[in-house]
């Protein structure tokens, strides 16, 4: 078990915050998660939203009503320590080992975290479109616009915003379809299943669709 010190706790609003931890000797890859443990030893996995080059670890966390870990994390103070696992992961936005001319990211809610890690490094070497859905505009944590080729944003629970009012899946007709493109999906299982099916029905190979589903289980 690792221990990291809280060096930042920044609230976007009451239920959404960014937790920053000192990095110590941790090395990680874009797309990695850490399991963060509360004082009872209950753990939840969170994607790291900072890039491997940065000198600290960041996480984008939604406080779940009655959540065993997120609520506990939201109440931590600077200088307190949090127990974590070592980094692990299998979702690699911008994977340089793949022959891809372009990539398209799909995220809902805090599913933007691994993509924030990707955009936090230098300029992307691959052209990247972003499809991003949140419940409210205040939930949006947008990557730097200059690093994105095109972004398509949907807000599902508010009508009068500058973004599309509805679900991210309403925007699928705008998705560029090509066998040279890799598609990266992170967020709730319903969105991931729906977009995967959409892509597969348009002839995109299973091997070009990369998924990170919020964890299931006990």
């Amino acid at each position: 078990m690792e221990k990291h010190e809280v060096i930042g706790l920044d609230f976007f609003h009451e239920d959404l915050f960014q937790l920053s931890l000192n990095k110590r000797d941790i090395t990680h890859e874009i797309g990695d998660c850490l399991t963060l443990f509360n004082s009872d030893g209950t753990g939840r996995p969170y994607s790291i939203s900072s890039s491997p080059e940065e000198d600290h670890l960041r996480f984008l966390i939604r406080r779940q009503p009655g959540g065993a870990v997120s609520d506990w994390l939201a109440q931590k103070g600077l200088g307190e320590t949090i127990k974590t696992s070592r980094p692990y992961g299998w979702f690699r936005p911008g994977d340089s080992t793949l022959a891809q001319t372009k990539q398209i990211f799909f995220a809902t809610g805090t599913g933007i975290a691994p993509f924030l890690a990707y955009f936090s490094q230098g300029n992307p070497s691959i052209e990247t479109d972003l499809f991003y859905g949140c419940r409210k505009a205040e939930d949006l944590v947008l990557p730097p616009a200059e690093k994105i080729n095109q972004s398509f944003i949907a807000i599902s629970q508010e009508k009068k915003t500058r973004y599309h009012s509805g679900r991210i899946t309403d925007l699928l007709e705008k998705v560029e379809i090509s066998s040279d493109i890799h598609y990266y999906l992170c967020g709730l299982d319903l969105m991931i299943d729906e977009i995967s099916e959409f892509l597969e029905n348009r002839g995109i190979s299973f091997m070009n669709i990369h998924r990170e589903v919020f964890f299931h289980g006990k």
Binding site: T35, G43, P45, T84, S85, R86, Y88, W90, F215, K218
Partner: peptide, 23 residues
């Protein structure tokens, strides 16, 4: 023992980030 799933019946007690048996 790290796994992407947290199945309650797991023979190994595996779950995301579990470190009982290391990578």
């Amino acid at each position: 023992t790290s796994c992407n799933l947290s199945c309650p019946f797991c023979l190994e007690g595996s779950s995301p980030g579990d470190n009982r048996i290391h990578f």
